[in-house]
């Protein structure tokens, strides 16, 4: 009996420690989350406008194909996976990598950003051509390296399509893995609306200054660079949100476990006191 209470006391103590740790991680994730979410949300108007401009350019320049606009038959595809470096963020990476596994291993090359994706690629023996480490707050220069590599691969014909697989931040409780096409730059369904708006507002006779080729040369790579940057920013917001939620539920679980254990402990304690009392009284009665 005594051994049992000691065991329970020890367990309560260790669960308490765990709760403290997860609580601390929750706080850290919460503060990082606020920053990352703000960054992701503030960047949206810019991303939308860039999308709109690119869609308009694409529309206007349907015939005169810039290399980055060329649709080719897809023999090889390059997939850029943006994952987290660390775990303890719920099902975030599991969901992401489940999507990654859907690509045909024979026909797909991978570039990874973040350690989890790199580990997955190595473990499942995918064709990994590069892995990048990303800092906690992504910088444009840092992400540009990734998009530059993707553009090079696309231009020299090693791949015919470049897609990005990333966790999109919807809100604090919801993050979903999405795949979007990076190259050839195309008007995706999400910006068809923008395209129509652009067409209505401007008509198709747009003048370019200095000329269309120069504008496209500058715009399209920039579009790709920025798309990757956005993807990473969103992925970070999603990561910290997921981690905060995961840590919060861990803390809650630990707390309810402590409550149960304490109840159990008290029950045993009381039971043992009662038995002791009984023993004493019986002994007295026997003597007296």
């Amino acid at each position: 009996m005594a051994a049992n209470t000691r065991d329970i006391r020890r367990r309560i103590k260790s669960v308490k420690n765990t709760a403290q740790i997860t609580k601390a991680m929750q706080m850290v994730a919460a503060s990082k989350m606020r920053k990352a979410q703000q960054l992701a949300i503030d960047g949206r108007p810019y991303a939308q406008l860039l999308n709109k401009i690119s869609a308009a350019v694409n529309e206007v320049h349907g015939d005169e194909k810039h290399p980055l606009l060329q649709q080719r038959e897809v023999k090889k595809e390059l997939v850029i996976i943006i994952s987290t470096d660390k775990g303890l963020c719920g099902a975030l990476n599991t969901n992401l990598l489940r999507e990654a596994a859907k690509f045909d291993p024979e026909k797909t090359l991978f570039i990874t950003g973040g350690r989890k994706a790199a580990q997955w690629a190595a473990r499942s023996r995918r064709n990994l051509i590069a892995e990048f480490q990303l800092k906690d707050t992504p910088s444009f220069v840092e992400t540009k390296v990734i998009s530059k590599m993707a553009i090079e691969q696309f231009l020299d014909g090693s791949v015919d399509k470049v897609s990005v697989l990333v966790t999109r931040f919807v809100n604090t409780l919801t993050q979903e893995p999405v795949v979007f096409q990076l190259l050839p730059v195309s008007a995706s369904p999400s910006n068809t609306k923008d395209m129509e708006a652009a067409r209505e507002a401007g008509g198709l006779d747009v003048e370019f200054e200095p000329n269309s080729l120069a504008v496209l040369d500058a715009l399209l790579p920039y579009y790709a660079h920025f798309a990757i940057y956005r993807a990473v920013v969103e992925a970070r917001a999603a990561e910290h949100s997921a981690r905060m939620v995961a840590m919060k539920s861990a803390t809650d679980n630990a707390k309810s476990l402590i409550k149960d254990l304490t109840l159990e402990y008290n029950k045993i304690r009381q039971a043992s006191i009662t038995t002791e009392l009984l023993e004493i009284t019986t002994a007295q009665m026997a003597l007296g």
Binding site: G203, D205, V206, E207, F208, E209, P210, A214, V215
Partner: peptide, 19 residues
């Protein structure tokens, strides 16, 4: 400040895209 020099834009300008 366009790449080809300053550019004044008034309403009803022709559609234009510039760096």
């Amino acid at each position: 400040p366009g790449s080809e020099g300053e550019l004044g834009v008034l309403p009803m300008h022709i559609p234009l895209m510039t760096q």
